[in-house]
Design a binder for these strands. Sequence first.
DNA 1: CTCGTTTTGTTCTCGCGTTCACAAACTCCT
DNA 2: AGGAGTTTGTGAACGCGAGAACAAAACGAG
Lengths: 229, 229
Amino acid sequence: MTARTTSAKTLGARTLGEGARDIPEATVARLPVYLRALTSLAEAGTRTCSSEDLAAAAGVNSAKLRKDLSYLGSYGTRGVGYDVDYLRYQIAREIGVTQDWPVVIVGIGNLGHALANYSGFRSRGFRVVALLDADPERHDEVVAGVDVRPFDDLEQIVADQGVAIGVIATPALAAQDVADRMVACGITSILNFAPSVLSVPEGVDVRKVDLSIELQILAYHEQRKAQTA
Amino acid sequence: MTARTTSAKTLGARTLGEGARDIPEATVARLPVYLRALTSLAEAGTRTCSSEDLAAAAGVNSAKLRKDLSYLGSYGTRGVGYDVDYLRYQIAREIGVTQDWPVVIVGIGNLGHALANYSGFRSRGFRVVALLDADPERHDEVVAGVDVRPFDDLEQIVADQGVAIGVIATPALAAQDVADRMVACGITSILNFAPSVLSVPEGVDVRKVDLSIELQILAYHEQRKAQTA
DNA sequence: CTCGTTTTGTTCTCGCGTTCACAAACTCCT
DNA sequence: AGGAGTTTGTGAACGCGAGAACAAAACGAG
Ligand SMILES: NC(=O)c1ccc[n+]([C@@H]2O[C@H](COP(=O)([O-])OP(=O)(O)OC[C@H]3O[C@@H](n4cnc5c(N)ncnc54)[C@H](O)[C@@H]3O)[C@@H](O)[C@H]2O)c1
Ligand SMILES: NC(=O)c1ccc[n+]([C@@H]2O[C@H](COP(=O)([O-])OP(=O)(O)OC[C@H]3O[C@@H](n4cnc5c(N)ncnc54)[C@H](O)[C@@H]3O)[C@@H](O)[C@H]2O)c1
């Protein structure tokens, strides 16, 4: 789904030390879920939990959970379980959310406004450093404490703040252009909400969130249910 | 990822006729992408396309595309390719977007507003029939031509309009309650934007869209890139 | 110290999905 | 009509991920 060639990396990484573990993509996608479940448990005052407990909170199979965690190392204690805070820190460190990631959002329309106002960003290590839009009428509006600036400020902001992650919330037609500009000035991870296929050079990760695809998948199953009934 | 037990269905379906084809989940998830690519091609005036062309437009491998399409039937012509309009109709029919699906959205905050204003719904066979919110201050506001109504109107609306698909855009804490109410009054497909694990009975499909998980996956890969560099 | 209990970490097996490769089928040109 | 060139549809090989099952490790009781 991404432009990334994870397979080629298996041999390329350094064999020295232990910074070269290769975590399966399916596991990476579940680690944030575990992180959220652990945070819930911690807030509820739980100090320790078994793989069964955590799996239930995360909505997965406990065998799968243990296998996933085993890729990170042995952070549990047999016969006891996992220390909630300790495991939480280890997962957070592995994902990289112990540090702060500056993020720019491009396209401050309906969706861009909602994203800018979303509190789930900051609480998970992401900091919205800029809101950019091509339409001059949007400029100087302040959304969630950040003011909307011209799209042409992109290069300056990315360079100044060391931005690596960009979010695209423009119409589909503009998305490829925006992505090209982002890539050109050094952004290497893109989250795309526009319904368009982006082409980016190797080494740049793209993930897309496509609402209408999700609805169509639901519709397909709904139709099947109606047929058999 | 969903609560659906597709595996158990393989035998249960009727063997008579041809309405019982079992399309792999991975393929179902790509059909909407092909549909969109075909629409683009049609709008550009293309009447016919090869699997290479369509695969490029959809951002996938052409072998995968052909195999996906083969689950629907043989709608291409060897040596020629696919008729764009004909294939488009066949995929649309298979997914179920030739009919109109009424949808309710619950939780008309930042995200709910954006969703209600999203034009990509109607253009793909989804019709927003109601916007519901528990907060009385939101009521009677009109968003995109639909007025916001009390959450307690849910049962009435679902019954009157035959709604099968519900969208949850409330805070995480309310999501499970909303889902329970939806299920109780007959909704069998849920699209959940709240960052919480929903538990629903068998036969109900849940798909979740979780923005911060997507960002964390990007962050993970970003961190890896930084390490090896 | 030993035994039983609990729970992790890992091995093994199975099924699904991806990709390659090619025969079958169609068009067009001579 | 026949052969060359295209492009589909699918059989087969392969790799990854899910889940079951179990051995290894920790803990507590006696
Ligand atoms: N609204 C939703 O709920 C929703 C849901 C899913 C997907 N989407 C997609 O997200 C995208 C945005 O949706 P929206 O409803 O916010 O649209 P919108 O029209 O409200 O906002 C788009 C914004 O992008 C800006 N823009 C246009 N071209 C630009 C460019 N080249 N550079 C920078 N900014 C540019 C516009 O000025 C506008 O402010 C669309 O592609 C849409 O399909 C929206
Ligand atoms: N804003 C975003 O971009 C964004 C992105 C990803 C995920 N989310 C998630 O989507 C959800 C909504 O986000 P938001 O920013 O729109 O929040 P919000 O607070 O702006 O809106 C939530 C709305 O839900 C209503 N509500 C609360 N409890 C309800 C109930 N029991 N029944 C019906 N309605 C109820 C509230 O009155 C409010 O209008 C949250 O779970 C959030 O984590 C938001």
